[in-house]
Design a protein around this nucleic acid. Structure first.
Lengths: 334, 334
DNA sequence: GATTTTTTTGCAACCGGTTGCAAAAAGTGT
DNA sequence: ACACTTTTTGCAACCGGTTGCAAAAAAATC
């Protein structure tokens, strides 16, 4: 069975406190004692029990990583990046799948049962109130992909979805499209609302361009495809800003099945620049959300909060940029 | 700050032991006492600290979920399923990303520091020795997607990759193909080796069919595409068994870019039946690996081991089946 | 009511660590 | 060698729970 601190103390012929100090950063212990203890510990294969020490230190080094999105392919990259960034700092992600429930209180309680040092909410659809429940319970929290506010109640890291909507609108206008449309994800999602708002307000500056919009049921291939199939029954726009890449791929599929050419007949621009967007058979023009930076910044922020829990809530927004690929025609020469 | 068992005891005017018994399944406590304690606990928002109790019980209900694959899209489904199945049993996954290192001992040590109740190794590329290190350290372990052996040292849950190779071969032969090929993932991977072996041994039964093989660098779209582009410079087979779905999608991309028609000119069969295989623009004929069953079985097995740690190691293999879609021509009528 | 049996309860020790503090040891200066 | 200062060390209490056991209380039996 696992060796304990007491076993090491007995073997090294020292007090338990000496052993503890040897393994506690910053604690005072003589070099001679340290060597004696380390020798005994090595012989026994001893490593401190993180959970026992957390009772005294109040630190587990575990971070709750909460998500309700396990279907959008970009989230595999998200989990890859989060796990790596946390591990690099000696932090351990306790993964929570909230696809089936979003009661803040039961999540808060569970996280406190495990004494996580902090929580990262990785979701664009879980509400600010969800994240705020952690803050109110005294648990450091960062909401990644959350909607920013002028006076944020919790730390938010992400992109400005409104600005992305404007950016997409500008991209379509710059290509001379006279009829454009927003095809968003689920209408109730804040990310959808913000992208829609940005798109529509930018398009309002171009009254001569006909602008329409609609929503898919979900951020998924099937939902995007189904919504475009519905649109194909009526009057089409020349170009579409689709709420995200996976939606865009569904839209592309429906368009091509209808015998239309992309970008010649129909232009498509997505959002996210997930790995698949660059696959040769997709080649999606999209707006890149800098996932790596967002995640590193989130982890940096949660780590900072461990040392400064009273840290004032901030919103860190990262700029997006248009990635030119094959689904939008080139900008005409001036 | 969080209420403790002691706070509840004081508020209810009872002993700490009474409070503990109220929250411990199977412990003896009168209904009257229980009600009194529960009232006080509710008023204080008390929940037992799982880590403190683990010191006595030896149980954290945390399960290490180890993976080194965060790029194959099917792993998003894998994580979704694992988190759900574990959560349903009140178990919590501590996620570990081993993309960058595979030293068994450091992983074992980390898991023991957190007193996980068990470990699930979700990887087809991490070696049996990796999993065995946990067993040797007395940590219950299940290797999901591991290679089975006649005398397994650890519990293994997955598919018979050799049989899948045979199955793919039979599928190609049944369609009358006279020139067939295996296009595998990384040659060193055991999954590649087994699939290759099954394919080749089955094809050996059909000496009149010309059989060739090659390997992609990786299980990825780009690697699949690149390998097919290389093959397109030479003599092509009529149909290919590609080592997994994501490889197949890359292969499809290269084939179509070369102006060939699928399945008329070239047939493709993949393996896994990940969500994307069914997308209308992919419509991949593939061999379904029953991910849901594999994962539920793994979780069932780890849960069983918590109660019976000495349980004899077993291998649970699930049958695969061919999913007919659009990338292989139909079987000719007899 | 008295006796016996069963259930409930609190005490105190335990789980594996950390840490304040006083005493001991080591180091420095004269 | 002695006085003073700094560092190191062990003790014992603590962190937030669980549990064996003996005593007390409740229930059952006659």
């Amino acid at each position: 069975m696992a060796a304990t601190l007491k076993d090491v103390a007995i073997r090294a012929g020292v007090s338990r406190s000496a052993v503890s100090r040897t393994f506690t950063d910053g604690a005072s212990v003589s070099p001679k004692m340290r060597k004696k203890v380390q020798k005994a510990a090595a012989e026994l294969g001893y490593r401190p029990n993180a959970l026992a020490s957390s009772l005294t230190t109040g630190r587990t080094k575990m971070i709750g990583l909460i998500s309700n999105n396990f279907h959008n392919p970009i989230f595999l990259t998200v989990f890859d990046r989060f796990t790596r960034a946390l591990q690099e700092r000696g932090l351990r992600p306790l993964l929570v799948n909230l696809s089936d429930e979003t009661d803040p209180q039961s999540s808060v309680q569970m996280m406190r049962q495990y004494s996580v040092d902090g929580v990262i909410v990785a979701s664009s659809t879980l509400s600010p109130d969800f994240s705020k429940a952690f803050r109110d319970a005294g648990v450091p929290v960062v909401h990644t992909f959350g909607r920013h506010a002028t006076n944020p109640h919790v730390h938010v890291v992400g992109i400005d979805n409104v600005e992305c909507g404007r950016m997409a609108a500008r991209a379509l206008v710059a290509r001379g499209h006279r009829r454009v449309a927003f095809l968003g994800g689920p209408e109730a999602a804040t990310s959808t609302q913000d992208r829609y708002q940005g798109f529509m307000t930018e398009m309002a500056k171009h009254p001569k361009v006909k602008t329409t919009y609609s929503f898919a049921d979900d951020y998924s291939f099937e939902a995007g495809r189904a919504e475009m199939q519905r649109l194909l029954q009526g009057t089409m726009a020349e170009a579409y800003f689709c709420g995200d890449d996976v939606l865009s791929i569904g839209v592309l599929s429906a368009v091509r099945d209808a015998g239309l050419k992309v970008p010649e007949d129909i232009g498509i621009i997505g959002l996210n620049d997930m790995e698949m967007a660059g696959w040769a058979n997709i080649d999606l023009t999209t707006i890149r959300q800098p996932i790596g930076q967002i995640i590193n910044s989130s982890v940096e922020l949660i780590a900072a909060m461990l040392d400064d829990p009273g840290r004032y809530p901030e919103a860190r927004l990262f700029p997006c940029d248009v990635v030119e690929r094959g689904t939008l025609r080139p900008v005409p020469d001036p």
